[in-house]
Nucleic acid binder design. Structure first.
Length: 585
RNA sequence: UGGCCCGUAGUUCAAUUGGCAGAACGCCUGACUCUGGAUCAGGAGGUUCCAGGUUCGAGACCUGGCGGGCCAGCCA
């Protein structure tokens, strides 16, 4: 773990914990034990990163521990593939759980025994109502429910039927075990909630050992209690489940049930989930996007999944920093995308080696440069990090520059290349544009003619004359071809669900969320992707393409076929200026 | 005529628990610069949702409104 412990509460959750610590509020004698409890039914997203940083970070801060617990109580949705992916993502984020890897399914036996205990105490009953009837008799938000006709079954009958459920004597949906609480309770969760349902399904871990599975409410608090969790931190959506969480524990304790960690009393605390504009942080939605063909998979770089962000080039350091900056509170929040971008830029600016890549090439012939001559010019790898050293970049008579870096008729305040104007080639020479070659048929600019000043090698004119612009370039003879993928928001609306009547989120899909550039010219040093990956702990090569942005090597890259993803562009004040004046660079 | 939670710069959070409303990101201006990047300096931006009340003093406490979110899966 790389997070550093700090002192003092940073938000209300930590205030509560420090209060508990002072008063031994949960009987934990100074221990802080948290847990991160994902359901393995999909990939983790950046909202989970907030929870992970809170859960693991809190344990770290107070010298406790954090458990990783798979909340695997619904085998029809869960898969081993997701269990594996979740572990990869949590580790990648920078957190470890040591030997504390658990599964709710580890406790199926204990949960069953405790359910029997509740039945014997008259606190739970087997209900024969079909799902629709359970739903109908629950009542509504404003009216009470009606008790199940099976509510007053004898303990013996309940015991026998519950055992029958476990033994597989009934089909799916035929019966449930329900807690006996209060059908008139204003909190719907307390209206005799279902504890067990019959599911003849193979579980990734317990196989076919069970055909009844505990519901979330019956599994979660008890798992916390078993593991000695002191602070069970979760999404505000569970706030209304807290009375039930407490009710179950109260019953068990009153009935003399013993946790292996007797004396502890876990407490649930809720915080507001993270929201981002132009996307939706919902595991179920992700599958819609994949199935609809709007993205290529759960790790598509446009996805807000951790695997998508990773493939996009985000570093775990940047994501952790982001989670730190957004804070923890209870109010509904939508974090501006600019903050996430700021966090990656700040990290990558310090660490990413610079390279030159021309995304939309325009050929330049330097007329006074000897034909066939190649020079190796020295370039600084990272101005922010002298230890990164330098490298050689080949230069020749023909080079590529960015189409955007030339304007035949320069707009106001444009100070790159235009006819008669001089610019500096980064780490190279000063060149002056002397001519423009056009396609006679279309009028499109196909080539520039320039001259260079041999005295300016390295970029420093001996006469001290100033050139305002420095542009990047790549030697035409030595350039390597690459594909570059530029990404934008998957949705064009801040709230993707804000769609006219009769339509849905599909109308808000951004048709330009992916732009593939082929024929990109990159400097030859980028061909060696293996050595470029070495400095990154996750083995993903990341660079700053000078004046363009941060890019990483995509998983589709193979020897001889380079593919880069743009993580994020550089801050671009010229783009703003151009937008203001209506000009286009 | 339900329950629970939440209202502080554009955004997200602070405010030593009742004592002069701040920070970060964003935005604007300038300096510097071989990345129109980075860095540095400065600036704008607030009826603390509203109305009462308690108090010498309220963003905080009380009452009443208003606004927003969540809840009626045998999902989590």
């Amino acid at each position: 773990m790389t997070a550093t412990p700090s002192t003092g509460p940073t938000h209300f959750i930590h205030e509560i914990i420090e209060q508990d610590l002072r008063t031994n509020g949960n009987g934990a004698n100074g221990q802080v034990v948290t847990r991160f409890p994902p359901e393995p039914n999909a990939f983790l997203h950046i909202g989970h990163a907030k929870a992970i940083c809170l859960d693991f970070g809190t344990a770290l801060k107070y010298g406790g521990r954090c458990h990783l617990r798979m909340d695997d109580t619904n085998p029809v949705k869960e898969k081993q593939e997701y269990i594996d992916a979740i572990k990869v993502d949590v580790r990648w984020l920078g957190f470890g759980w040591g030997e504390h890897e658990y599964h709710a399914s580890d406790y199926f036996g204990q949960l069953y025994d405790w359910a029997v205990l509740l039945i014997r105490a008259g606190k739970a009953f087997v209900c024969d109502l079909p799902p629709e009837e359970v739903s109908r008799t629950r009542g509504t938000l404003t009216s009470p429910g009606t008790p199940s006709p099976y509510r007053e079954r004898s303990v013996e009958e309940n015991l026998e039927l519950f055992e029958g459920m476990r033994a597989g004597r009934f089909p799916n949906g035929a019966r449930t075990l329900r807690a006996k609480i209060d059908m008139a309770h204003p909190n719907l969760n307390m209206r005799d909630p279902v504890m067990y349902r019959i599911l003849h399904a193979e579980h990734p871990r317990t196989g076919n050992a069970w055909c009844i599975y505990p519901m979330y409410d019956w599994a979660h608090g008890q798992s916390d209690w078993i593991e000695g969790i002191t602070h069970s931190l979760c999404d505000q959506a569970y706030e209304e489940h807290r009375p039930l969480y407490d009710w179950f524990l109260d019953q068990l304790i009153a009935l003399g049930a013993k946790s292996p960690n007797a004396g502890y009393r876990p407490k649930q605390r809720e915080f507001a989930r993270l929201n981002l504009p132009f996307t939706v942080l919902s595991k179920r939605r992700f599958l819609d996007w994949v199935e609809g063909g709007f993205v290529k998979g759960l790790d598509d770089p446009r996805m807000p999944t951790l695997s998508g962000l990773r493939r996009r080039g985000f570093t775990s350091e940047a994501i952790r920093d982001f989670c730190q900056r957004i804070g923890v509170a209870k109010r509904e929040n939508v974090i501006e995308y600019a903050l996430l971008e700021h966090c990656v830029r700040e990290d990558l600016n310090k660490r990413a080696p610079r390279a030159m890549a021309v995304l939309r090439p325009l050929k330049v012939v330097i007329e006074n440069y000897p034909e066939g001559q190649i020079e190796e010019l020295e370039a600084v790898n990272n101005p922010e990090d002298p230890a990164a050293g330098t490298r050689k970049v080949p230069f020749g008579r023909e080079i590529y520059i960015e189409q955007e870096d030339f304007a035949e008729v320069p707009p106001p305040k444009y100070y790159r290349l235009s006819p008669g104007k001089e610019v500096r080639l980064r780490w190279g020479y000063l060149i002056t544009c002397t001519g423009v070659v056009k396609d006679p048929a279309t009028g499109a600019i196909t080539e520039l003619r320039c001259t260079y000043d041999p005295a300016t090698r390295g970029g420093n004119p001996p006469d001290g004359r100033k050139v305002k612009a420095t542009i990047h370039w790549v030697s035409a003879a030595k350039a390597v071809d690459a594909e570059v993928r530029l990404y934008d928001h998957l949705f064009s609306k801040e709230d993707p669900d804000d769609a006219p009547e009769g339509s849905d989120w599909r109308v808000n899909i951004n048709p330009k969320s992916l732009e593939v550039l082929s024929g990109v010219k990159v400097e030859p040093s980028l061909a060696d992707t293996a050595s470029g990956a070495k400095q990154w702990t996750d083995g993903i090569g990341r660079y700053q393409f000078e004046r363009q942005g941060y890019f990483c090597v995509d998983a589709d890259s193979k020897p001889g076929r380079l593919v880069f993803n743009r993580t994020v562009g550089l801050r671009d004040t010229w783009a703003k200026e151009a937008a203001k004046t209506g000009g286009k660079g």
